[in-house]
Simulated scan of single mutants.
Amino acid sequence: MASMNVSLPDPMRDYVQRRIDSGHYASVSDYVRDLIRRDQGETQDVERWLHDLDASIERGLADAEAGRTHDLDDACDAIIDRIRTRASAQPQ
């Protein structure tokens, strides 16, 4: 296993030591490994989200090119009409 040297300001070093003393971590190395694992997971989540977003945009563009879209004003008007119809049908 490789080793690295890290310099920390005193308040950060003290914080890490308190985490170790409280039993949350066995050592400084354990603490740093946990931080790296969390960062790797977060990075993978962001990459997955961006990939899904790109795919969604591509599907939307393909739908637009194929004419599978609706005018936003027309769609909003239809929703408002349905809300008004339901509201007027409610007993008062």
Results as ranks from 00 to 15, higher is better:
I36D: 00
R33H: 06
R19E: 14
D54L: 12
I57R: 11
D52C: 07
T43A: 03
T43S: 04
Q40H: 02
H24L: 15
I36C: 01
D54M: 12
E65Q: 13
R33E: 03
L53M: 12
D14M: 06
Q44E: 02
D39K: 13
I36Y: 00
D54W: 11
A66M: 08
A66Y: 06
L53Q: 08
V32Q: 03
S29E: 04
I57M: 11
D45L: 01
R59A: 13
A55L: 06
L61A: 10
V16G: 08
V32F: 03
S22Y: 13
L35E: 02
I36P: 02
S29I: 04
R59V: 15
S22V: 09
V46P: 03
A26L: 12
D30Y: 01
R38M: 05
D14F: 08
D21Q: 05
S22G: 10
A64E: 13
V32Y: 03
G41L: 00
L61S: 12
S27L: 01
E42W: 07
I20Y: 04
I20P: 10
Q40G: 00
Y15T: 07
I57Q: 09
D63F: 11
R59T: 15
Q44S: 03
V32S: 05
L35P: 06
H24G: 15
S27M: 01
A64V: 14
Y15K: 09
V16M: 09
A26C: 08
L61R: 15
D21L: 04
S27K: 02
L53P: 13
L35R: 03
W49I: 15
Q44G: 01
G67N: 05
D45C: 03
D52E: 04
R59K: 11
E58V: 14
H51W: 08
S29F: 04
D54N: 11
Q40K: 01
Q17T: 14
D34Q: 10
L61I: 15
R33I: 04
I36F: 00
D45T: 02
R37M: 05
Y25G: 09
V46T: 03
S56C: 10
R59M: 11
E58L: 07
T43R: 04
D45Y: 01
D52I: 11
A66W: 05
G23H: 04
A66D: 09
D52G: 05
S29D: 04
E58F: 11
L50Y: 04
D30V: 09
R59W: 07
A66N: 10
L50F: 05
Y25C: 06
V46N: 00
H24Q: 15
R33P: 07
